[in-house]
Design a protein around this nucleic acid. Structure first.
Lengths: 188, 188
DNA sequence: CATTCACTATGATGACTGTCATAGACCCTA
DNA sequence: TAGGGTCTATGACAGTCATCATAGTGAATG
């Protein structure tokens, strides 16, 4: 836990906690306890305080998911839907139905300070661009791909909330089923 | 502000604050200040403390929206989509892009105590049933209506988050456009 | 008039929050 | 060996949170 990775550990822990408990639940006390990182050096690593930590956490998970989307090499638009929803679904399961999207939680928990809101906005935009490209690559209708991406992201975010509320991920079945139909209609 | 409506005032105020600031931001101090209700009688009206207030607020807004859905008398499935998203969209605008769905915020902000999670779960289920019926009434494919309802609710919840993050409601355009196509495909 | 009840006012409690100052520990370089 | 920069430990700070106890109000009932 010494040397240089304390900062990274904190950011990583903040991502998990952000998904599970939101911005307010991600207090420094909880972060340091969950990650076994030293409480004394917080303002050394994050001079901007809590906001800086959360921002970095949002950037981190945002970039990670973006990379995941960019790596999708699907043969059909329906496969893009399958992979995208499948990832979120398994994330929900992995959290034992106790986690939401960290970015969504940040957008919701953003207070007066606009920095957090803007950070999550940028992530959403990045995801939208990447997913749009993925749809185009898979042979979807080019002019509709942006719409498809928006629908998928919005639906996934909503499904996470509903799935968590019901401790059940069957919502994803309906979404996957219908959105596959939608994106297949015009493509190919 | 005397007599019997203090309780109702508090619940009403809690709904607004819940949508804007989430569970944690809906503190008693803020509620009483925003509604000009007496701070001293909180535990008289809500012996269950904060949880009871939030629960009642979720029930309240849940029933209100349910009634709204039940009142929809649409000629086509596409019209159901139009009305449903239109309502959420104008709610977002009305809040100056600073409000989410109060029920979603409660689901997210629910802590260890399961009561809040369950309350929001029930509301989501109620909405799902009502919207499914609305689709069936409008002539949509009966076996697909449940899926349609799930997709619409999830997408709307996600769109609220994204719209708030970007202070922009153009996401709703894409959603409305595509989901109208989807629900029209099999219906009629 | 007296009692009871619904409601309100005030303030204390202890826990937790983000923030920061101070001082000590570690290790690389000279 | 000495110095200096990076990191850590400890704890104080002002504030807010939910909760509750105590005391008080006024009105309706008996």
């Amino acid at each position: 836990m010494n040397r240089r990775n304390v900062r990274e550990e904190m950011i990583k822990g903040a991502v998990s906690l952000l998904a599970e408990r939101g911005v307010h639940g991600t207090s420094f006390a909880v972060v340091t306890e969950a990650t076994n990182t030293p409480r004394g050096s917080i303002y050394h690593h994050f001079p901007g305080g809590k906001n800086e930590l959360i921002e970095k956490a949002v950037d981190s998970i945002g970039g990670l998911v973006t990379a995941l989307i960019d790596a999708v090499d699907a043969a059909t638009p329906a496969d893009v839907v399958e992979v995208f929803f499948g990832s979120w679904r398994s994330a929900l399961r992995a959290s034992n139905f106790d986690g939401n999207c960290a970015v969504a939680n940040t957008a919701i928990g953003a207070g007066e300070d606009d920095s957090l809101r803007v950070a999550s906005q940028h992530v959403f935009e990045k995801w939208h661009r990447s997913l749009t490209s993925a749809f185009i690559r898979s042979g979807a209708d080019t002019s509709a791909s942006s719409d498809y991406a928006a629908v998928c992201i919005a639906a996934a975010e909503g499904a996470l909330i509903m799935g968590r509320a019901s401790r059940n991920d069957s919502v994803f079945d309906a979404l996957s089923r219908q959105l596959k139909l939608l994106v297949s209609a015009s493509g190919r």
